[in-house]
């Protein structure tokens, strides 16, 4: 049995007395690639924020790499891409390279946090991987939405985290870049043994890459392998055969599917 990178026990969370998450318990193991799917307002982002310690816990426990969240200090093991990328000040005076370098801060101990030679080559590698090496010196505000997105992804992976958490990373990407990005994350997951939690609405695509599906709607509707999901008559009853078919057959028709849109 591989080690759990993330374990959640009995997590509940309410916002102004209305429950956002109810009794969430799950374990993500090293090498897992979890597609986290659910309708708007289903608590996906709240769950992610709770895992990262950005939202204080009232009930339940979370541990990262077998350490309770409150005692967890090895933030270099985590890569995170937040959802609200468009909110960055467009006049912020930082070039792409400087933003990517921020991802290395968690690796640095003590007072010296200067960017050294080794750091530069890591920054370079991450930017090459995302095809943005030529944008190194460009101010972030002058980049297109998709380019900015890739800069933030580079920041999330530059420290070669063991657990990569991506909150709707593909929204600003064109189809071609999106495909490349899915492939990249898949490669990182397989060859780099990086566990991944991937929040997305692309339910037709995520199944081609992720090996586990977490369907959330304020509580866990389903958590397990895709094959189990597809064989489950309970899930067929919950989603209707057609939607289950979209998720299982792992193709992209969902965007045009009105029934599924209603569900999301």
């Amino acid at each position: 049995m591989t080690v759990p990178v993330l374990a959640i026990r009995n997590l509940s969370f309410s916002y102004n007395a209305s429950p956002v998450l109810t009794d969430i318990s799950l374990t993500v193991r090293a090498g897992d690639y979890v597609g986290l799917v659910g309708p708007n307002g289903s608590g996906k982002s709240t769950l992610i924020r709770a895992i990262l310690g950005l939202t204080p816990l009232r009930t339940g426990e979370i541990s990262l790499f077998e350490e309770p969240l409150t005692a967890f200090r090895d933030w270099h093991k985590i890569g995170y891409l937040p959802q609200r990328i468009g909110q960055v000040n467009p006049h912020f005076p930082a070039c792409a390279e400087e933003i990517v370098a921020l991802g290395l801060l968690s690796l640095k101990k003590g007072f010296s946090k200067r960017v050294g030679e080794e750091d530069r080559s890591r920054i370079n590698d991450a930017m090459e991987l995302l095809g943005i090496a030529d944008l190194r010196k460009k101010p972030i505000g002058e980049l297109s939405g998709g380019q900015q997105q890739r800069v933030y992804i580079a920041r999330a992976i530059v420290n070669q985290p063991s657990l990569l958490i991506l909150d709707e990373p593909t929204t600003a990407l064109d189809p071609e870049t999106r495909e490349r990005f899915y492939t990249l994350v898949g490669d990182l997951n397989r060859s780099g043994n990086m566990s991944v939690i991937f929040v997305t609405h692309d339910i037709g695509t995520i199944g081609r890459y992720a090996n586990r599906l977490l369907y959330l709607d304020k509580k866990i509707i389903f958590f397990g392998g895709f094959d189990d999901f597809c064989r489950s008559s309970e899930m067929a009853a919950y989603f209707g055969n057609y939607s289950q078919h979209i998720i299982c057959h792992r193709h992209d028709h969902d965007a045009q599917d009105p029934e599924l849109h209603g569900r999301r």
Partner: peptide, 22 residues
């Protein structure tokens, strides 16, 4: 000078800075 990178990280985006252990 001592806190330059941390100040930069927090100025750019406080939440992501927190998830870098700052």
């Amino acid at each position: 000078v001592l806190f330059f990178q941390e100040l930069f990280a927090v100025t750019f985006d406080e939440e992501t800075a927190r998830t870098s252990g700052i």
